[in-house]
Simulated assay, not measured.
Amino acid sequence: MYRLFHRIDKGLEPVSNMFKQHVVAEGMVLVQQAEDTTHSKSETPFFVRKLIELYDKYMAYVTLTNCFANNSLFHKALKEAFEVDDAIEETLDKVVKLLSYINDKDLFAEFCRKKLSRRLLFDKSANDEHERLIITKLKQQCGGQFTSKMEGMVTDLTMARENQNNFQEYLSNNPSPSPGIVLTVTVLTSGFWPSYKSCDLSLPVEMAKCVQVFNEFYQTKTKYRKLTWIYSLGTCNVNGN
């Protein structure tokens, strides 16, 4: 269907709207299931996990070349489908309250932290405000210690955007150390995030220069923090002519 309608001027708009409506419908089924479970209190509903799985499922469709080919209309449709409305927020309140029935809250917190890290680092989060909303509700229910690392992770991403802007300004004012390619670096605070393995790689000359230039920039910001590069979490876009 995508291949057929993308040849027509504005032909993808109705397709993306149908896609959005379908995702919303599936999401509301999860909302209703969570509400039913909350009322019965027969088991702890994993509403957030199911919602993440739903998002991952349809994000895969959006990014697949033979499906929606990363088209911006479908990215927008998916994002809008996951906007938190009053009904979902009310359900989140009920689900979070059921955390009192979980015996191993530390294990649950670690599970939440790992899932949150993937959403934040791989840009799978629908909205930063929604992440903060969930964390706030968890904090109200379980206390600040339960959510302190998750709050730190979201703050890290906010600071990373500011840091990236400062890096671009640094390159503008100092053209000589330019890495020559577009470089985006996300600086994380190790104590907040899950542990990631660091390995020594023999980088191509162009990428090695990127690392060198950013290290030089970072030293102008602070001399008391050491950067450890986690290449396994990086991505590289190569455009062919």
Rank of each mutant, 00 (worst) to 15 (best):
L233G: 00
T228G: 02
T38M: 14
P14N: 04
T91V: 12
L120C: 07
K97A: 12
K137Y: 05
K50G: 13
Y196A: 02
E26N: 06
E90S: 13
S72H: 11
V29E: 12
V238G: 04
H130P: 00
E89V: 01
R119V: 04
Y224W: 11
N127E: 09
C112F: 10
Y58E: 02
T44H: 11
T228Y: 04
R113Q: 06
D123S: 13
L51E: 08
V211Q: 13
I181P: 06
M150P: 09
E13N: 03
T38P: 01
G27V: 01
G240L: 12
K94S: 09
S176G: 10
S40Y: 03
S40A: 12
K114T: 06
E80F: 01
E80W: 01
T147R: 04
E151I: 01
F108R: 14
G143I: 03
F47P: 00
A126I: 07
F146E: 00
C210A: 09
Q168F: 10
T65S: 12
T147C: 07
K137L: 04
K223S: 15
L203P: 04
N166Q: 13
D86M: 04
E35T: 00
F214E: 06
E35R: 11
D36Q: 15
Q212M: 11
D36P: 00
N71C: 00
C236M: 12
T228I: 02
R119Y: 02
L4E: 15
K139G: 12
V24M: 09
S195K: 14
F214S: 01
T136D: 14
K50T: 01
F146C: 05
Q168Y: 05
L157W: 07
E129F: 11
V24W: 05
L107C: 14
I88R: 14
V205Y: 04
I102W: 04
L107T: 14
T222C: 08
F146V: 00
N237S: 13
A87M: 14
P177A: 08
L98C: 02
N71W: 03
F46D: 10
N215I: 02
K76C: 12
N165C: 11
L138V: 04
V213P: 08
L64K: 15
R49Y: 14
A126N: 03
K197M: 10
I8K: 04
H75I: 09
V96F: 06
I52R: 14
L120R: 03
L188V: 00
T63V: 15
E80Q: 04
V187N: 13
F111C: 09
Q32I: 05
Y218C: 08
N66M: 00
K223P: 01
F47K: 07
A160D: 09
K20C: 11
L51R: 13
N174I: 05
T147Q: 05
V182F: 15
F108N: 13
L133M: 15
